[in-house]
């Protein structure tokens, strides 16, 4: 076929089938054609699961996870620098991109010139096209951020930050600065080796995010103490560390009974597969009763704190060794 034809001239069912054959990159490129094209795509109610912004060293990236099989990314490159002077880290404003690389599943790529849209406008477009709630996650991967934190805040101020992921080589100071600038988020996920010593970032632990995840691999040798755990102020807590002993768990439970961690609803401590729990040590000095979880027919241990709140302990001894503790009012 040579001449251009009108997609809207096709029956609605056919339009849907054509657009259904598009991947997320095509849908965005098509939406860039005009407002009408964008409206057409929006009307088909496509969705994506997650949007993540990553302000990296030399480029800025927006990742979107469409579903289990498809993820796409738009990588934005800065204009050519006017001088070769090394920029002062943490002071560089977010640029209006020059070139865009769109990639699907980190492989198929298309390069094109940015149609003079700012990063914020790109985020808005992606969120609109995929009928996504105005929530995005931010990924921090460098020891210190090249960009001015206020400039990053400016990009996301129209949206809610769902999660801050501190990963790869992200440094503690970078995370602290990010959270001082953008403190409101539902989830904090800490997965960078720089965070091995929680005593260095207790100001992060006390933030009242809904969930906190510390450690995602045992390569990250998290040395978390009882005091660190007790000051965490999140509802859902997940910690992966080989350094939490049965005695520490016992002491934690005694503190909880006395009223510590009042906001916590659910905690999981994850250990290496060869971990053997000593129940006697974990429960030493506690008043408890044994029962079974009805659904999983799994043994549970019930304790009660002074204010009458019930706590349930489940020790998972299967593939992953976990101490699960949840509060039931």
């Amino acid at each position: 076929m040579s001449a251009a034809f009108s997609l809207l001239g096709l029956p609605k069912n056919a339009q849907r089938k054509v657009l259904n054959g598009f991947d997320a990159v095509q849908l965005i490129n098509f939406s860039l054609l005009s407002n009408n094209a964008k409206t057409l795509v929006r009307s088909l109610n496509f969705t994506i699961a997650q949007i993540t912004l990553c302000a990296d060293e030399d480029f800025i990236e927006i990742q979107a996870i469409v579903d289990k099989e498809q993820s796409v990314g738009w990588i934005f490159y800065p204009p050519e620098p006017s001088s070769r002077i090394q920029p002062v880290r943490g002071t560089v404003p977010i640029f209006v991109p020059n070139l865009v690389k769109a990639e699907k599943n980190f492989e198929e790529t298309i390069y094109f010139k940015n149609p003079k849209m700012s990063i914020s406008e790109w985020l808005t477009l992606i969120i609109e096209v995929f009928n996504h709630p105005p929530i995005l996650d931010i990924l921090w991967t460098k020891p210190d951020c090249l960009f001015d934190m206020k400039s990053i805040k400016g990009i996301v101020e129209r949206f809610n930050v769902g999660s801050h992921f501190f990963t790869r080589n992200c440094g503690v100071e970078c995370a602290q600065l990010a959270l001082r600038t953008m403190s409101e988020s539902r989830t904090l996920a800490i997965a960078s080796p720089a965070f091995a010593n929680p005593a260095e970032y207790q100001d992060i632990l006390i933030l009242n995010s809904k969930s906190i995840f510390i450690g995602f691999s045992f390569d990250f040798d998290l040395k978390i103490s009882l005091d660190d755990i007790l000051i965490i102020n999140s509802k859902l807590i997940h910690i992966m560390s080989r350094h939490i002993t049965d005695k520490t768990i016992n002491r934690y439970l005694k503190h909880w009974i006395q009223g510590s961690n009042p906001r916590m609803e659910n905690m999981r401590l994850e250990f290496e597969p060869n971990r053997i729990f000593d129940e006697e040590v974990i429960l030493r000095g506690l008043k408890y009763r044994r029962a079974r979880l009805i659904r999983q027919n799994q043994p549970k241990i019930c304790i009660r704190r002074k204010d009458g709140t019930n706590g349930i302990i489940v020790l998972h001894l299967a593939e992953t060794r976990c101490f699960d503790f949840y509060v039931s009012n």
Partner: peptide, 10 residues
Amino acid sequence: KLTRKYLSFS
């Protein structure tokens, strides 16, 4: 969310 690309410590 992390494993696809960023749960590696380079």
